[in-house]
Every structure is written in C-alpha cells, then in structure tokens.
Design a protein around this nucleic acid. Structure first.
Lengths: 182, 182
DNA sequence: GTGGTCATGTAAGTGGTTACATGATTTG
DNA sequence: CAAATCATGTAACCACTTACATGACCAC
C-alpha cells in the first residue's frame, strides 16, 4: 500500500498530470519507489474516486488530453496518517545474492561478467546521486524540509557505495580470471 | 522468476519436503529471498510438472503425508543456466525512505517512534547475522563453497550495519525530542 | 494529411499475500 | 478419544509487469 502515498507525496510537491508524474518518478521518487505509467494512471483513478485528489479544471477530460491532479485535504490527512503509522520493513529480495548462493552449488561459471556489469551499473547510479547532491544540496543551507530530503538521498548514496564495494570484494574472489579493475 | 531457483538451490543443498523448505527459508535463504509455505508448495508442484525435480519415493503421497523432493539433472542445468545469465538488478523499494520523503511535506509527527523501532529490528537482525558468522565461518577454514556463502552473509551484515548507522543518523535529526539512545 | 510524439488508457498475465480447509500424527 | 500440532493444499485477492490501443497535437 505504498504507491498511492508515493503519488500523494509527489502531487503535494507539485500538482501534475499522469505522464508528468511518471517522468518525475523516473528521476526522483522512483529511486526508492519505482512505478510505471500504467500503475500511476490506475492509482490516480482510485485516488480520485476515493476523494483524496481531484482533477484540476481543464477542457474536456478526454483521451489524449492532459489532465492534472491536486491533493485534497483528505489526501493530505491520509498521507500524514500513513507516514506516522508503524510499519514493518519489507523482507529484502536480492537476486544477485541468490545467484551467488546458487553458484556455491552449481559453480561460478559465467557469473563474473554480470558481477562486473552490476558494478558498473551501481557506479553509474552512485555518480548520479552524487551529482544530485552537488546540485540540490550545496553545503551550508539545509532547511527543515531539505534536511529530510538530503537524508533520503544520503541513504541512496551510502547504499550504492556499499554495493560497489561489496561487488569489488566479490570480484576479488574470482582470482582465476584476469581482473581489469586491478 | 527467482523463487523456483531459490528452491532448486535449497533442494540441491539438501532434499526436503515443503515444510522443511519453508523452515529453511525462514532462517537461511529467506534472509535475501523470503517465501511463504503457500508459494513454496505451489512452486514445488510447477517444478515437478516441469521435470526439474521429483518426489522421493514414499508411502501414499496424500494430504498430511510428508513428501520430499530432490533435484533432477534438468533442474541442476536450469539453475546453472539461470545463475550465469545476465540479469538487471531490480529497482529498490523502501517504505521508510518514502515515508521520510512524505514527512518532508506533511510533517514528521509520529515517525520517530517507528524509526527507533526499525533501528531495534535492524540491530537484532545484525546480531543474528553476526552469530551465524561466528558459528558457521570461524576464521581460517573457508573452502571454495564456503567463501561464496560467507560473501553473501557479509552482504547481509554490511547492509544491516548500514541501516543501523543510517537510522541513528536520521534519529539525530529530530533534536526536538529527547533521545534515550543518547 | 501523414508520420511522429505526447498522453491516457485497456487487457492479460505473473508473482506474492492472506485466509482458510483438511488429513495425519502426537500427547495427555 | 480429544486437543494440539504437523503437513499439505485451495481460493481469492492484490500489486506489479508487459503488451497493446487510441486520441490529440505538432512538424513537415
């Protein structure tokens, strides 16, 4: 039950249409809660029906017409309630760890290449986060809201840092192959 | 498509019945790929039908009768294929990060208590991993298989370490409330 | 006015969760 | 033999994914 609240948060930050939301998810909220445009359109419909958001007045709300939404007071209240409510962390699901565990049984043949590829992907993500930090959080001027957003970004940076280090460590365990990263 | 391969891995490590698998998931593979007994029974049925595993000969395979499975050569081959195949990392989904982002908009009221609770949960998980490491990976005798399994456990330990540190850091951002952890 | 892109949407399928049902075995 | 627990399973539901459909707008 997190997607509707992710959407409420995004809409409170800025009223948007479905596609605008999709794009913003791709480069912001989606970093820790991804969603496709189909999920978003479906959820926007439910949220409107539940009276938590409403479509901003526009022309004819037909297919192909842009339709922007804003959050109603009931939506803000629901988001505040959800934010404060106790929730258990979801159990983690990581395919690469599973594959290494499998490799301990059926052999490591062929997995090094993908470990290297994942390392590159995580390095790219880390660089992206660092760029966002440099752009949006210059030292010395964090307000109250910014402090929280910076904290979230920091989690992303530290997680990607962890993965890159762990993957390098993992690759070092395959000494039988030449390691270009040295 | 990871659950069947998680099951194949577990069955290769040791042929088991559905409930035995469920228990082993709860304290081993489930640390990075959780599954309920319903998922496991359903998947065992599919894997058997696909000819990747087979039920070990027993009495009457009826309801309430224990039924153990073992992996067939085709199952081992499929697991090796899957392990070596390139796979993109799944986008991450973390509710707590989402909630902090929401809190930046609707206020932090009430979230500190759950941050503390999560900190305790992650500390407990970390302690459990450390205990497993102490028990199963005493220094100085890692074989090839063990090295991989140790590497996976290390990821768990380092991830929980990250979360506990991050949560402590987050809690330090709520100076308006007394912090018992000091 | 055709082709490409923007924008919203439908439909089908998959994987995971929750609730419940039922037979077998053990314990008092 | 009644109650508790072990073990397997069914059914309904929900969230997410993938593929596709369709209308509006813009550039040439």
């Amino acid at each position: 039950m997190s997607l509707p609240h992710a959407i409420l948060t995004a809409l409170l930050e800025k009223p948007s249409s479905g596609l605008e939301l999709t794009r913003r998810f791709d480069r912001s909220i989606g970093y820790f809660w991804s969603a496709t445009h189909q999920q978003i359109y479906r959820e926007l419909g439910k949220l409107e029906e539940a009276g938590l958001i409403r479509a901003l007045p526009a022309g004819q709300p037909a297919r192909g017409q842009k339709k922007a939404y804003e959050v109603l007071p009931a939506g803000r209240a629901e988001l505040a309630r959800w934010t404060a409510a106790a929730q258990d962390p979801r159990p983690m699901r990581d395919t690469m760890l599973l594959r290494l565990r499998a490799a301990a049984v059926v052999g490591t043949e062929g997995i090094e290449a993908d470990l290297r590829r994942h390392l590159e992907l995580h390095e790219a993500q880390l660089a992206e986060y660092r760029e966002i930090e440099r752009r949006d959080f210059p030292p010395g001027r964090d307000g109250a809201e910014d402090r929280l957003r910076h904290l979230v970004l920091r989690a992303g940076i530290d997680l990607e840092t962890f993965w890159t280090e762990w993957l390098r460590h993992a690759l070092a365990d395959f000494p039988e192959l030449p390691d270009p990263a040295a």
